[in-house]
Design a protein around this nucleic acid. Sequence first.
DNA 1: CACACGATTGCAACCGGTTGCCAAAAATTG
DNA 2: CAATTTTTGGCAACCGGTTGCAATCGTGTG
Lengths: 361, 361
Amino acid sequence: MSISPAAGRSATIHDVAARAGVAASTVSRALSNPGRVNFRTRERVEQAAAELNYIPSSQARALTSGRTVAVALLVPDITNPFYFDIIRGTQMQLKAAGYTQLLVDTEESAEVEAEAIEKLRKSADGVILTASRLTDDELSRAAATFPLVAINRGVRDVPSVVIDTPSGIGQALDHLVSLGHRRVAYISGPAGSWSNARRWQALQRHASDLGLDVVKIGNFPPKMTSGAAAADAAVNQAVTACVAFNDLIAIGMLQRLAERGIQVPDQMSIVGCDDIFGAEFCNPPLTTLTAPIEQAGRVAITMLLGRLNPTGGTAPRQLSTLPTHLTVRASTGPAPSRADPNADAPTDPASTGTAPTRSAP
Amino acid sequence: MSISPAAGRSATIHDVAARAGVAASTVSRALSNPGRVNFRTRERVEQAAAELNYIPSSQARALTSGRTVAVALLVPDITNPFYFDIIRGTQMQLKAAGYTQLLVDTEESAEVEAEAIEKLRKSADGVILTASRLTDDELSRAAATFPLVAINRGVRDVPSVVIDTPSGIGQALDHLVSLGHRRVAYISGPAGSWSNARRWQALQRHASDLGLDVVKIGNFPPKMTSGAAAADAAVNQAVTACVAFNDLIAIGMLQRLAERGIQVPDQMSIVGCDDIFGAEFCNPPLTTLTAPIEQAGRVAITMLLGRLNPTGGTAPRQLSTLPTHLTVRASTGPAPSRADPNADAPTDPASTGTAPTRSAP
DNA sequence: CACACGATTGCAACCGGTTGCCAAAAATTG
DNA sequence: CAATTTTTGGCAACCGGTTGCAATCGTGTG
């Protein structure tokens, strides 16, 4: 080879320029703006680049063009398998578009989250927020000055994709009612969670439509370990079925109930939310609200990239709602007969007193 | 405020310089090299920076300093929960050190992997390779020119952290023997996998020490769906126990066996590998080789950062071996009596012919 | 044959920092 | 008090690209 880059260091645009016998600017144009240079010149440049194994520095490019070709994904807690599917979905879509994914754990903290967004402003072209802890106000302010898409958080003026669990909740309740349940508990997730609030709300509304008796139990961190306390509380409340904020808690409950010798679904039915990895093969397999989590990630990226690279014409959608559906597996079954609703639980003679307002068919 | 940055755009080092009444270079030094500027000057600069909410551009900094403060994690398939724990472990350690994680899916392809490494050379300070598909040669060549740590792949001159499954395999086999098993199958993972080869090797060695009869079944992709074929093959081979390449396959087998009405562990014992999320609550809970996966991720990052920021003195370790141990749960049990070893499987009268070389006590 | 215009390509400034080198200022020394 | 150090801070080059503007060249046109 006649001209080669300084030993060791990887080739720069100048090396390519020297080798092709043109100016650096021409190389830049030949590679990123073909048509702006002569056909034959471009060929020479391309060959030189290939020979030198030239890879443009995304850093340097970002400096002038302002585009980093990277998108950050903020999750509150990587530990939660729910986010795995989102990580996966976004990663796939990003890769397809040639973008890089920056993964950031915000530790369930609004402060860390806000700080991360500020930092990312320079090192990413946009951000996906999952289960944001920011206030509505902070959120819409951030969205006004930086490309941003929220997942599972609906706020005015913030593009978002939300998973329509509320409608799924209806299906879940119908299912439970059809199995004869009359008193169900909602196992509440974290206090600040938007999704949690929505689910509880939907559950209340549907329950009152159906004349169901509902109680809300706890606010629990969304972890498997919360399941134990939740399960205990549930049997103590003498409900025959529970709808849990998410599958993690639900699976934790399953474990605890098994430990206590309480049969699922014979003595207690459990419904989860999300249908995460594991819901299908836990014991018993979990009836749950299947959410298109991975798709949510993909859609979020599509929305984000849509506004990063506007293709004229149609403005990108502001809100995408993804449907859920109930997947019935083995953790739900007919309500136990009144005989001994909870052989194992602390006796509570009043428990059957809160009779359903609607009589059985 | 007297001097403020051009409306809208976020503050640059020059804005800070202007506001503090010093040169940009002074600001740079004040912030990154205190001690090089006067105490009072530094204070002024810091205050100006704070007032302007100045955040240095990592891009620009990377351009001159060469350090991007980012580390890439290459995984062959984000779909596999095994990597979730690695993602988590690396993410945690990186965050603690102020680094950013770049997540890349190499699609189980050596080519994509090599390409990614080349790209990353400029945009990351180092790379963690999990289950690399590269040849030993490519790998050590890459490691020679770029900070790199491999997980579960031992190659000369390539810093790596390997999980010592082979020794765990011994424990698993002992366990099976103590339960009376005499003929076990190894459910093989992907053909090219280094870990798979090691596991199979270790299994053979230990089996011959114990006088066990072993067969290798298939090469299966490391997915749950592989479990069905694996399970069928296993019952067909008239073994009473299986050690699977990983938990994913093992769980898939569990499902298939349940489907066919074959009792685990009464008719067939199953041992997994890795102890991924889900192994604990599948049905029955999986006996498996618990691997410190998350820790592996953390250790890998520690090694990598160790060589990125040499602290004089001790050269960083080249190889870190993490122990595993057998976690016995409910998927293993006493070998079925000879009566009807596989009521459900195609009859194979010769199956008991391959008697163990060592007689029972 | 002079002039104009489009296609190409080079020059140079700039993106936002970092850093070697030098000079002014302050402190130390004889 | 002059000479010598030591501090401190500015200048300018540079990292690896991008891009506005101008120069060059070829050719169509009047």
